[in-house]
Nucleic acid binder design. Sequence first.
DNA 1: ATGGCCAATATGATTGGA
Length: 267
Amino acid sequence: MRIATWNVNSVKQRLDNIVAWLKEREPDVVCLQEIKCVDEAFPSEAFEALGYNVAVHGQKAFNGVALLSKHPFDEVRPRLRGDEADVQARYLEAVISTDRGVMRVASIYLPNGNPVDTDKYPYKLKWMERLSDYVEELLELEEPLILAGDYNVIPAAGDVHNPAAWVNDALFLPQTRQRFQSLINLGLTDALRATTDDPGLYTFWDYQAGAWQKNWGIRIDHVLLSPQAADRLVGVTIDKHVRAWEKPSDHVPVVVELDIAARQPKT
DNA sequence: ATGGCCAATATGATTGGA
């Protein structure tokens, strides 16, 4: 089972790139973030033509998450629980049947939190606590659980080109990193860090200041695994090459290979 | 990060992203 996450920064602007990447990579499941459109405007047909089932949780202009899957969704759950007044579309979860039972996959777009002296930073921290509270419940199910997305968290100094420049940023502040660590401490595995200790592995390069050309990147797109998923981890790849394509997103896909097979349809 | 961008909005300037 190949599961990927990609913040596409507008599904409409990125459709050609996404389709080209899907053909090249052939993932089973894709978690998309920042689709920046309402459900009705999501280009489902382009993905269905490639054999994907589609689930969308969008909103007008900003945010928005989606799931693509070669295998049918048994259940789809939008919105992160814990705040009924929160209208931002940042969480979408689905259940897929596999040879190891139920597998649960979530597409996550965690709030950025900048500027930190506004209400955006408390919103981020609250969102992280809501996520932890919910994940604590999900882990009790003892299923393969894949929490994939743009976490807007730089976990450690080795995950940013110039740590000193980010010390006061919402992505790297100690409180942010502590809450991310608390989430991991519930019993999750950062898939990339389970495979390598190498610094300088990035998933985002700003459009500004020639950041891509200078490799001024940050690692903020993560795939977190429950024990039942981590035990089946085969490998992790950052598809860095798509950042050099025409009209790129500022994020690139992160792809996880798990030794889990889709349930064969009954014949 | 020496400065540098990009997407959406009934747009021609502003907001949001990271």
